[in-house]
């Protein structure tokens, strides 16, 4: 983790101004940390409460907003894990398959489309760009029925295909737009130089643009992971056989308003399902820092 301000070479400056600035900076650092820690605690409290609740007996969950634990109910985890015909890991593996497919699909298709929109001139470009934006704007609930008809005609219902194939076809226009914004932020002289050296678009794309947009790719990968991992609606509609269920479907099935809900297990498995997401984020955020800043720019 390189720290940019620290590694940047300090310019020669007048001694006094330098000292004043140093004192200011010294004051600033603890202040900043106090601020950040205060923010972090507010952000974290509900999350901690969820973890603590997952270790509480059912009857206590709704009566206690604090973080104290009187008796530990570890059974929530074992009960939740074995609540269905398959162990909970089965549903997590299904989710992982969908998620990996979706990430590869999005990285591949959206970066290509984004390059075209950001760097190439072609006919009716503005119209196509507007079309792309419009596709983000229509709520899923009204297209789900025609879309379901389409996928059931293709015999894709109850497979992971309706959840993965569209990603390879850049239907998540959000990420195209994201990458377009990033590519437009990359100085053009870099690809101009390659162009003069006789590189084609494929080479410029692979050798110059892609390496420089690692932060955007990492953002895409992380978001795709999290959104697909949490996505409930399309998985609900397209996956019918319980063996194909993914994590959010299994989690939802814990909750029943009319009769009993084993909240302890529901919380425990919510926590379990968060672990992979959190780990991916921890690992993936490293790549958010790459890019011009650390690859040296020019």
């Amino acid at each position: 983790m390189t720290d940019r301000t620290a590694t940047a070479p300090r310019p020669l400056a007048v001694d006094r101004a330098h000292a004043v600035r140093r004192i200011k900076r010294r004051m600033r650092v603890p202040l900043k940390h106090v601020l950040l820690i205060a923010c972090a605690l507010t952000m974290l409290y509900p999350v901690l409460w969820m973890v603590v609740s997952s270790l509480r007996p059912n009857s206590e969950i709704f009566r206690n907003a604090g973080l104290d634990l009187t008796h530990l109910q570890v059974e929530n985890y074992t009960n939740g894990w074995n609540a269905y015909s398959e162990p909970f890991s089965h549903y997590m593996i299904n989710s992982v398959i969908v998620v990996i497919g979706a990430i590869i699909g999005n990285l591949f298709s959206c970066s290509m489309a984004a390059y075209a929109f950001a760097r190439l001139e072609f006919r009716a470009k503005r119209v196509w760009f507007a079309t792309m934006l419009v596709t983000i704007m229509l709520p899923i609930h009204v297209i789900i029925v025609p879309q379901y008809v389409l996928f059931s005609e293709l015999d894709w219902v109850n497979t992971f295909l309706p959840l993965i194939v569209p990603k390879f076809l850049a239907t998540d226009a959000f990420f195209i737009f994201l990458m377009v914004q990033f590519i437009r932020g990359i100085p053009r002289e870099l690809d101009e130089a390659a162009w003069i050296d006789g590189a084609g678009h494929a080479r410029i794309f692979f050798n110059i643009i892609l390496p420089l947009m690692v932060p955007a790719l990492a953002t895409t990968a992380i978001f795709t992971f999290i959104w697909t991992w949490n996505d409930f609606y399309s998985q609900l509609i397209y996956l019918t056989d319980p063996d194909m269920y993914t994590t959010p479907l299994a989690l939802r099935a814990f909750v029943d308003q009319q009769t009993e809900t084993d909240w302890g297990s529901a919380f425990a498995m919510s926590v379990v399902s968060l672990v992979p997401v959190f780990l991916v984020f921890l690992a993936g955020q490293r790549f958010l820092l790459r890019g011009i800043a650390t690859t040296g720019g020019k």
Binding site: M43, L44, P46, V47, M50, S53, I226, W229, N230, D231, F232, P248, L251, R252, F254, V255, A266, F267, S270, S273, L274, V277, F278, F281
Partner: peptide, 10 residues
């Protein structure tokens, strides 16, 4: 973290 649990039943 909060954004991660945004979709959770909890």
């Amino acid at each position: 973290l909060p954004s991660l649990i945004g979709g959770s039943v909890a």
